[in-house]
């Protein structure tokens, strides 16, 4: 997944204002939207999280090895193999265990989407917006390197990072293409599962300059791109296949509104999920959405970064 940057032309509209005023007004604008959604803005201080790659080693063994280096880990209760790093004298990205692919550094909320799929072994899975590959490796881990993952991304440099990630973590069931997810039907394949960790506007918890950089036009632009990828994904998904849709955006246009559009236009249904986070709302800014939207999950920044996640099933062709 990539957080898509602002577009210059869009930004120009706002830049006639002095920077401090613009910053205040943009921040106020977004914060007031969060309040309307029932969440009071507060700054968050995220702890680094890791995920053990159980295809390469036993979880307990890796934890023991890291603890022997003096690294303090706390199990994250809502994840399978996720731990928070509560203390480490050095970077957890520089241990020999990391370099041997025994674990990955992956933010806690970012570990949620992949665990929502049911039965991944031997399946054909599309990771539509894959780089830098944290979730691709997690998919391979849950698949125990069986089946096939097709991983796409549009930026070549990010594909190199993705490939390095796959090599380090000993992933052997993945094929990577330099391809826009909106063109994925060109692969001439049908998928059992699709992970759509969509390019989005991101959120302030992982980017301290977020309010300075973002405008509502960025949000709208990303929402349009996400709809296009959703539509293409629905085309190449097998009947009864699953799409897990996720963004790290807090903006309803990229989340609830998009999913409401998808279930009304793409022969998809929302499946109830049981995971960390709160039920998504069905009435946002005065707009009434489909009641099944409440089965999506919205995660406000607190112990994790902000996230939105839902699971869609393709209805059988009549």
């Amino acid at each position: 997944m990539a957080c898509e940057g602002p577009v210059k032309e869009t930004a120009l509209v706002f830049y006639w204002q002095p920077a401090y005023l613009r910053l205040m007004s943009d921040k106020k604008f977004f914060v007031s939207r969060y309040e309307k959604l029932g969440w009071k803005y507060r700054n968050v201080n995220l702890k680094q999280a890791i995920r053990i790659n159980t295809m390469n080693s036993k979880e307990a063994e890796v934890v023991k090895r890291l603890q022997s280096h003096g690294i303090k880990l706390d199990k994250i209760p809502f994840l399978q193999s996720g731990y928070r790093v509560s203390w480490s004298e050095f970077s957890v990205g520089a241990t020999s265990e990391y370099l041997m692919g025994l674990y990955s550094i992956q933010e806690a909320a970012a570990q949620i989407p992949v665990i929502l799929f049911t039965e991944l072994t031997d399946k054909t899975v599309l990771d539509a917006c894959a780089a830098p590959g944290g979730k691709t490796v997690q998919l391979a881990d849950l698949m125990q390197n069986t089946g096939a993952i097709i991983a796409l991304d549009t930026k070549k440099q990010r594909l190199t990072a993705l490939s390095n990630h796959l090599e380090r973590c000993r992933v052997s069931n993945t094929i990577v293409y330099h391809m826009d997810a909106r063109r994925s039907s060109r692969l001439n394949m049908k998928f059992d599962k699709i992970l759509l960790d969509a390019p989005c506007s991101g959120n302030f918890a992982t980017d301290k300059h977020w309010f300075r950089k973002r405008t509502i036009n960025d949000v709208k632009r990303n929402a349009k791109l996400q709809k296009e990828i959703l539509a293409e994904s629905a085309k190449i998904l097998k009947d009864n296949g699953e799409i897990v849709y996720a963004t790290c955006s807090l903006e309803p246009e990229e989340n609830e509104f998009n999913i409401d559009w998808a279930i009304k236009n793409l022969n998809l249904q929302i499946e109830k999920i049981d995971c960390y986070g709160e039920k998504a709302q069905t009435n946002i800014f005065g707009k009434q959405l489909d009641s099944s939207i409440e089965n999506c999950r919205r995660i406000w920044p607190q112990k994790t970064q902000g996230f939105f996640v839902c699971k869609l099933i393709k209805c059988e062709c009549k």
Partner: peptide, 21 residues
């Protein structure tokens, strides 16, 4: 790259990375 029979069925022209490098 080293692939298996399953990946061989899925691989298309123009891939960037496949199987085990």
């Amino acid at each position: 790259f080293l692939i298996d029979d399953n990946l061989k069925r899925s691989v298309r022209k123009g891939f960037f990375y496949a199987g085990t490098y």
